[in-house]
């Protein structure tokens, strides 16, 4: 058989006019995939749109500048909740970030991974990240009792709970960022006579900062939406003054939303919807910042 006839026959065989990629079975399967995607995204979109429509009437300055009001439901505001959440984030970060980075650096740069206690810590870090947030609330209540502070619903307690909550997240992401720094950089530094400490402080951590910042912000954006641990600590849903310090009683945005959504007056429910949108905007803003930092400072080795 000559080469020419072989080629000709092959041409005929491949030009069948229909594609097996478009068989009924494939199309049904493809349709199912589309439906799954559509269903997941649609539910979310409908939910957010519904909330936004319900709260649309309340997108006014009073929503963020005024305290909550039981006498004028249509003019109630979330000033205390927004400020409370911001204060909580600030002190959560102050507590969780140094601790988390230090723990991660120890595990990556100093710990001997062959030791049983270091291995136990490693395994349990993953478990800690999966612990329900309300448990951290309980833990913070215990800590507050231990250090002898009886006041309920204050910044310190909430920040301790949220810091404990996001600590595993920060440790895990920091470890990943530290691990991404090439071994050659460490060796180069050590070969010049630098100590492990100098190498960590001057080479590894500066290179890992973008990753650490991203992880921290993502952790905080998880914490800002939490209500359960704060309820355990007795945060009030109605506070009519700005937070003034660590011992100042506060409320938080999720707590206020929780409190208002169970109210029977429609005006309060609309206000809650509007507050949900405010909370979502805050979280999306933080996530956007995280993505921005990651893209801007990401280093390719």
């Amino acid at each position: 058989m000559s080469v020419a006839t072989t080629t000709a026959r092959d041409t005929v065989r491949i030009a069948t006019g229909k594609s097996r990629e478009r068989s009924t079975g494939s199309l049904v399967f493809l349709g199912l995939l589309w439906f799954s995607l559509f269903f997941g995204v649609m539910v979310l979109v409908v939910l957010i749109a519904d909330t936004a429509i319900a709260g649309a009437g309340r997108f006014d300055p009073a929503l963020v500048t005024r305290y909550d009001s039981t006498l004028f439901p249509e003019r109630t505001g979330f000033r205390a909740g927004i400020l409370g959440s911001l204060w909580l984030m600030l002190f959560t970060a102050l507590m969780a970030v140094p601790l988390g980075i230090a723990a991660a650096v120890y595990l990556e740069e100093f710990a001997d991974s062959r030791r049983w206690y270091n291995r136990i810590i490693e395994v349990n870090l993953q478990n800690l990240a999966a612990v329900p947030s309300i448990v951290y609330g309980l833990l913070a209540v215990a800590v507050m009792a231990l250090i002898g502070i009886e006041r309920k619903g204050i910044v310190l307690g909430g920040a301790i709970a949220l810091a404990l909550l996001i600590l595993p997240v920060i440790i895990i992401t920091t470890r990943e960022a530290v691990r991404a720094v090439p071994e050659e950089i460490r060796q180069g530094s050590l070969a010049l006579g630098a100590t492990t400490w100098q190498t960590t402080w001057r080479q590894v951590l500066p290179s890992a900062v973008p990753g650490i910042a991203t992880g921290t912000i993502l952790g905080l954006s998880r914490a800002i939406g939490e209500a359960a641990p704060l309820l355990m600590l007795g945060l009030a849903s109605s506070v009519r003054f700005d937070p003034e310090g660590l011992m100042s009683p506060i409320t938080a945005l999720p707590i206020q939303i929780y409190g208002l959504s169970s109210n029977s007056q429609e005006a309060f429910q609309d206000a809650a919807s509007a507050a949900i949108i405010v909370l979502l905007v805050m979280i999306l803003g933080m996530n956007a910042l995280a993505i921005f930092i990651r893209n801007k400072f990401q280093r390719s080795w």
């Binding site: 180069g188 530094s189 630098a194 001057r202 280093r299």
Partner: peptide
């Protein structure tokens, strides 16, 4: 020691040189 793969630090040329004298 000089390594197989060039491993400059992610710093300026100046700081790469000054790093050793500074840390030691």
């Amino acid at each position: 020691m000089v390594f197989q793969k060039p491993n400059p630090f992610p710093k300026s040329i100046y700081d790469n040189i000054a790093y050793g004298p500074r840390v030691t």
